[in-house]
Design a protein around this nucleic acid. Structure first.
Lengths: 146, 146
DNA sequence: CGGAATCCCTCTGGATACTG
DNA sequence: CAGTATCCAGAGGGATTCCG
């Protein structure tokens, strides 16, 4: 039975595919998948969610320093987006100096679960991807001396 | 024990987080997570993978008609990218008229598994997201008659 | 049929400066 | 500290045209 593992995967996968493609086959207008993907597909959302998941409650500047390369502006924009969709909560403390704490909501934790799966997968399969990329370069970069 | 489910999730999640944040905390240069996310985070890659997973082997024009809204150019670009990273195989038949068939590789199927998890999650949680979005609009759109 | 090449416009996001 | 406002470059991606 060399097909056992594949069979199991196929079964689980086809269930999901069936669900996703029913009733409409992923039409762009109003497609949940597209909508969520556009949201978390931007440059910083997933990173923010991962960091919040990792560190828990964080202040604006803490996030700013942990997320490598992000600008002040984009952190604001990203957090507003995540807050808007209910993934992140924002608590403002009326102090001086002001303090604002961000934290994943329950929905955000749920998203983290999925995103983390993808992240771990990415880490695990990075080798294969790089290998495929290298193989592709060699075969198209230069061919065996005519 | 109202914390049981959360505890279980936390355990599984913290394992993943530990893995992702070790040893470097998601630095941008050379981060696998960022790299893969940039690849599949574009407008059409995930849709293409989902359709190939759903229909199996597909020709260029079949994909073009199934993926709602995609242009010829972007389908080409997307497929080249997926092929480059080893997610999709490309078979050319020397016929007239020419025929080219695309199919998920083993690595592509593996990616499909993750992406599908996200897609199903998106569908399941679309309600909550829309609700959060609506709530956010109401509270910032207009406040109770002053 | 399955692209490649070109044009062009929009939107993302970076840098900088200012505010409560 | 935690933003907002403005400006602007560059990438993403659509429409169109041409090719094997």
């Amino acid at each position: 039975m060399e097909g056992t593992i594949v069979e199991n995967q196929s079964e689980k996968i086809s269930k999901g595919l069936e669900k996703i493609f029913t009733p409409a086959p992923l039409q762009v207008p109003g497609c949940p998948v597209r909508d969520v993907l556009d949201r978390i597909g931007d440059k910083w959302s997933i990173l923010s969610v991962l960091h919040l998941g990792h560190s828990g409650k964080l202040r604006f500047n803490e996030l700013l320093h942990r997320i490598d390369g992000i600008s002040q502006r984009m952190l604001t924009v990203t957090l507003r987006g995540l807050e808007r969709d209910g993934f992140v909560s924002r608590r403002i403390f009326a102090e001086v100096p002001p303090r604002v704490e961000y934290e994943l909501t329950t929905l955000g934790m749920s998203l983290l679960d999925q995103v983390l799966g993808l992240a771990v997968w990415a880490q695990d399969n990075m080798g294969d991807i790089m290998a495929a990329r290298a193989a592709h370069s060699t075969e198209s970069g230069f061919r065996s001396h005519s």
